[in-house]
Structures are given as C-alpha cells and as structure tokens.
Computed example of a mutant assay.
Amino acid sequence: MTSTVRIAEVGKWYGRIDAVSGASFELGQGEMVALIGHNGAGKTTLMKLMLGLIHPTHGSIRVLGENPAAGEFSARRRLGYLPENVSFDATLTGRETQRFYARLKQEPIAKAEQLLDVVGLGAAADRRVGIYSKGMRQRLGLAQALIGRPQLLLLDEPTTGLDPELRQTFYDAIQRLAAEGTTVLLCSHALTELEERAGRVIIMNRGVKVADGSLDELRRLAQLPTRIRLKISDLAPGEVPAWLPTSAPCRRLNGHVIEIDAPPEQKIDLLRRLTAAGTPVEDLDVMSPSLDELYAHFLRSAERPR
C-alpha cells in the first residue's frame, strides 16, 4: 500500500509539556483511520504537524512525499482540513466562501459550489455566514474541506452539530472518496460512529500512541470478553443453565434473560454447548467488545505502572 503520511518518532514540546511524544505510524492511500483520545491527548497537535502549521521538536514527517516543516509545502493544495472550531468571514455568503477557497486551491468554482448541496446547504448558499447556525457553519467547513477531491482529508470532530441524516450523508461522501484513493483521518469523540466506519484505529494517551490496528486486531490484543445474551423460555428464577461452565461469569438481567461474559477462547465452545444441550432459546445476541470498551481498556493499560 502506498503511504500518504509517514510519521517517525515525532515529538512536539511546549516548554516542559510533551504534547506528542515519540509517535510513529503511516497512513496508506485509501485508508479511513480514526484517531481517538481524550482532550489533550495530542490528536489536534498531530494534525497541525501534518499541515505544517507547527513544526516537530524532533522526528520526521512526510505528507504526500513532502516535508510539511519546509518553507514551501505545495502538497497543502492536495489536503482537505476541517478544524474542530470552524471560523469564516461572517459578511460573506456560503457560496462566496466556497468560491474563495476554490480560488485558493485553484479548483473549478462550479464543482466547489456543488459541494454545498452535498452537505445540505444548497438552499442557504446565498445567506450570510453570520446568520448561520453552528451546525450550518460546520457543514460549510465540510464543504470547503472537500474541495478538489483531496488526497488527504484531516477531519477534527467533523460531525459536531450535524443531525443524523446529514451525518450519514457526510460519511457516504468520505467513504466514496476513500474508495477512490483519498486517505481520511478522523478525530472524534463519537466512537460509535467511528466503530461502524473506520478500518483502523489509533489511540493516543497523553501524547503517546498506545494502540494501533483494526478493530479485530485491537480485540485480539485486549482479550476482553464477548457478551453472549440469551433469552431462555423455561429458565426458573435463579437457575443457571447446566451446560454453562463455572469459568464463564453469568448474570441474570431480567426475567428469562441471562448474560455471559465469554473469554475469547471460550466463545465458540459455549455456543457449541448451548446447541448440544438443546436449550430452548427464544433470542440470542453475541456482542464483541465495542470501540468504547477497547478505548477504555487501552487507556487503563497505559496508566498502569510498568
């Protein structure tokens, strides 16, 4: 896979504060990657380093084959960036704002204006940005970030203020771009959204990368239990199924519903036992550890004394 971004042992210090410490990773062409962490974990700092807005204290960064810290960073025209807090000239209309950014990127104005419809601002294109709501300004930020079909999209909390329908429209748009080869890096606290869409997750904690991989890879590393939830029609109050080994923690939720914490290596065996026992199951759910749970696990692991 062709690398769009290469970060090697990058650190960024502000006095005695390590905003980023020894971070190393690559982003491949067409990847959609979630960069997650608490406030102050170093996510926004990494994005600013990739953009060349700030320079690393040590380490090296290559973005689209160039060094962002160099005086001339021509690759910036091939980047799309949405900051967490967008700000535009309040006296311009949405359409005028898009035209301004299209000229900066030397892209066709007509195509840039079409993006206003993509983000649901077509009807408000000729209104002044000063009367836009926060959600409308966020949508305008998305529209400018998408100008020119960027090769790298850096999106910091991109769906803040968007309703569910527009969130789906937004993700549809960036998934199409990723399928066409755009690298997408998403920072967000909406982990449920990212779990459904990101092919890879990088977890930051206090400036340090503590985990990096697909959800399946992170689940294998974390070894968190899978929850198996069963609704059993003839289960008496307080009864535990005879086929359930004592090594698998089990709890009653309500009525005839029980929930089992199955270690990864026991999950298939438990389901086989269930089938072999002929237990009259009315409903069954198998729930793998969520991104929220994985995130909490890796942060706790990073805080433990070594």
Rank of each mutant, 00 (worst) to 15 (best):
M1F: 08
T2E: 15
S3F: 12
R6S: 15
E9Y: 00
V10T: 05
K12W: 03
K12L: 10
K12H: 11
Y14L: 08
A23G: 02
F25W: 12
F25Q: 04
G30Y: 04
G30S: 08
E31C: 04
V33C: 06
H38Y: 11
N39S: 12
K48H: 13
G52N: 01
H55R: 15
H58R: 14
R62I: 10
G65Q: 12
P68W: 02
G71H: 15
G71Q: 15
E72H: 13
A75E: 01
R77H: 14
R77D: 11
L79N: 02
L82E: 05
E84Y: 07
V86F: 07
S87P: 01
F88Y: 11
D89S: 12
D89Q: 11
A90L: 12
R99F: 04
A102G: 08
A102H: 07
A102Y: 04
L104V: 15
K105W: 05
P108N: 07
P108S: 10
A112F: 07
E113Y: 09
Q114A: 15
L115C: 00
V118C: 04
V119S: 06
V119Q: 01
D126Q: 10
R127I: 03
R128Q: 15
S133E: 09
M136H: 06
L140C: 05
G141Q: 05
G141K: 02
Q144E: 07
G148R: 02
G148Q: 01
L152P: 02
L154I: 13
L154A: 11
D156S: 01
E157P: 00
E157S: 02
T160Q: 11
L162Q: 02
D163R: 09
P164K: 04
E165D: 13
R167C: 09
D172G: 12
A173P: 03
I174W: 10
T182W: 02
T183G: 06
A190E: 12
L191I: 05
L191N: 07
L194W: 03
A198L: 04
M204P: 03
N205H: 15
G207T: 05
V208P: 04
S214C: 09
D216G: 12
R219Q: 06
R220Q: 14
R227H: 12
R227F: 06
K231F: 10
I232T: 01
A236T: 13
G238Y: 06
V240H: 09
P241E: 09
A242Y: 01
A242H: 11
P245R: 07
T246C: 09
T246P: 06
S247R: 15
R251K: 13
L253R: 13
N254R: 14
I258R: 01
I258Y: 05
E259D: 04
E259L: 08
I260T: 01
P263W: 06
E265V: 14
E265P: 03
I268Y: 12
A276P: 00
G278F: 10
T279N: 07
D283R: 07
V286G: 06
L294A: 00
A296Q: 11
L299G: 02
S301C: 14
P305Q: 11
